[in-house]
């Protein structure tokens, strides 16, 4: 049994029915070595202040619900441990760049709309039925997209991206990484539909390669790479339109 210590957790609080702007409240939280930041928040909710609101589900970095800012760093609170911050106090805030609904809960609808815009599913060249049998791939073909397919939509990358914060028209890291994931899939023939999103000013060209999105990704998706590789595709698409005006685009 590990020793119990006490850490100060400073939490952003915002109640839309009472507050004009967010404020901070500090809690003294006893913790043991194995306790995550999420468990610290749960302790506050269970023992100190039942009104603290935050999202969580799986507690093992799979569901992507418990993302928040700890000391200005976007993290999954289930994957970060209080012992690593002690003896300093920690400041917990909702994910940056998203509207706050209440306390640590943010409104994800903007992202969900963007996710939908990238056609995040396989578009087969011809309609397939179960009678067509399995759509086989070689290990090499899987390797082409597997990294990008690890995204859990936790939105840490959006909270890390100042370009999204400054202009939320930008499609953003996770949606563009998922776009790259489907484009790279040998079973997919939907590249042309997605090209409009890629080419747009708010598409890959909205990225200036700050690069923090890839650093904070808990699943090592590397959205910065996905986006910047698509800049090459977008450039090719632009010039090929002049070379073959009747073949591509329009």
């Amino acid at each position: 049994m590990s020793q119990t210590r006490t850490i100060m957790i400073e939490c952003l609080r915002y109640d839309p029915e009472q507050d004009q702007a967010p404020h901070y409240r500090t809690y003294e939280v006893p913790f043991t070595d194995e306790m995550s930041v999420l468990e610290g928040l749960q302790y506050i909710k269970d023992h100190l202040d039942g009104s603290l609101t935050f999202r969580w589900s799986c507690r093992m970095a799979i569901c992507g619900s418990c993302g928040c800012m700890v000391n200005h760093q976007p993290i999954l609170s289930c994957q970060s441990f209080l012992r690593d911050y002690y003896p300093a106090r920690i400041r917990v805030e909702p994910l940056e760049h998203f509207p706050i609904v209440k306390d640590l809960v943010i409104d994800q609808s903007d992202f969900l709309g963007k996710l939908e815009s990238v056609t995040p599913y396989l578009v087969p060249a011809q309609p397939l039925t179960p009678e067509d049998g399995p759509n086989l791939q070689t290990p090499r073909q899987i390797e082409d997209y597997l990294g990008y397919a690890q995204c859990i939509n936790c939105l840490l990358c959006y909270a890390a991206c100042p370009q999204y914060g400054l202009n939320n028209e930008f499609t953003g890291p996770a949606a563009l990484a998922l776009l790259a994931r489907y484009n790279a899939d040998s079973r997919d023939a939907g590249q042309k539909t997605r090209m409009e999103v890629v080419n747009a000013e708010e598409g890959v060209w909205g990225c200036t390669l700050v690069g923090l999105c890839s650093e904070v990704c808990p699943k090592h998706v590397d959205p910065a790479r996905a986006i910047n590789r698509n800049k090459i595709n977008s450039t090719q698409d632009y010039f090929l339109r002049f070379l073959a005006p009747f073949g591509r685009g329009s």
Binding site: P16, E17, Q73, I100, G165, L166
Partner: peptide
């Protein structure tokens, strides 16, 4: 009703 935080001095954050 949601609250959107301003981006002023964003470069100081990380």
């Amino acid at each position: 009703k949601t609250y959107v935080r301003p981006m002023n001095r964003w470069w100081m954050r990380h």
